[in-house]
Simulated scan of single mutants.
Amino acid sequence: MALKDPDILGIVDRAVDDFNGDLDELESAIGMLMLGRHYGWRVMMLIHSPTTIRKYLKILGIKNLRDVLPEVGVLAHRSNAWRLLDGTKNFWKVVRGQISGVRTPRVEKTPGKTP
């Protein structure tokens, strides 16, 4: 179940208070969390490697993205990777790296149209 914004901000505030290390890593972890509110944890798992997800979870002090983010966010349809996988059974194969060429951070405001 996705957390509400005040709870998300609590996670961010705690992470900022407790953080030791390079600020670019903290910034990236917070960015993943904030974007994940709109795109969902499935899209975040398609644009980040499992290693990166684990690093960000540790920085944020959370155990699992599924505990804090929606499964599929309201903007997931804008993700090229999500559109390729939506409705298929290949999601976890892509996450595990068994299928290549799908992961992409690319999103489009109007899917299917190029500027």
Rank of each mutant, 00 (worst) to 15 (best):
Ala29Met: 02
Ile30Val: 15
Ile30Arg: 05
Ile30Thr: 13
Met32Gln: 11
Leu33Cys: 09
Leu33Tyr: 02
Leu33Ser: 04
Met34Pro: 04
Met34Tyr: 10
Leu35Gln: 14
Leu35Asn: 10
Leu35Glu: 13
Gly36Thr: 06
Gly36Cys: 05
Gly36Ser: 09
Tyr39Trp: 14
Tyr39Ile: 14
Tyr39Glu: 10
Trp41Asp: 15
Arg42Glu: 00
Val43Asn: 09
Val43Cys: 13
Val43Lys: 14
Met44Ser: 13
Met44Cys: 09
Met44Ile: 12
Met45Tyr: 04
Leu46Met: 11
Ile47Gln: 14
Ile47Arg: 13
His48Trp: 01
His48Gln: 13
His48Ala: 03
His48Phe: 00
Pro50Asp: 09
Pro50Gln: 10
Thr51Gln: 06
Thr51Pro: 00
Ile53Gly: 12
Arg54Phe: 02
Arg54Leu: 03
Arg54Met: 03
Lys55His: 03
Lys55Glu: 01
Lys55Gly: 01
Tyr56Val: 02
Tyr56Glu: 12
Tyr56Thr: 03
Leu57Gln: 03
Leu57Val: 02
Leu57Asp: 02
Lys58Asp: 11
Lys58Met: 02
Ile59Glu: 11
Leu60Asp: 06
Gly61Ala: 07
Ile62Asn: 08
Asn64His: 13
Asn64Phe: 08
Asn64Lys: 15
Leu65Pro: 06
Leu65Ile: 05
Arg66Lys: 15
Asp67Cys: 00
Val68Tyr: 05
Val68Trp: 08
Pro70Gln: 06
Pro70His: 11
Pro70Thr: 04
Glu71Met: 01
Glu71Asp: 00
Glu71Gly: 00
Val72Glu: 14
Gly73Ile: 01
Gly73Ser: 03
Val74Asn: 07
Val74His: 09
Val74Asp: 02
Val74Lys: 12
Leu75Arg: 15
Leu75Met: 12
Leu75Glu: 15
Ala76Leu: 09
His77Cys: 04
His77Glu: 11
Arg78Ile: 00
Arg78Ser: 06
Ser79Cys: 06
Ser79His: 14
Ser79Glu: 06
Ala81Asp: 11
Ala81Ser: 14
Ala81Trp: 05
Ala81Leu: 05
Trp82Val: 00
Arg83Trp: 07
Leu84Ser: 10
Leu85Gly: 12
Leu85Lys: 12
Leu85Ala: 11
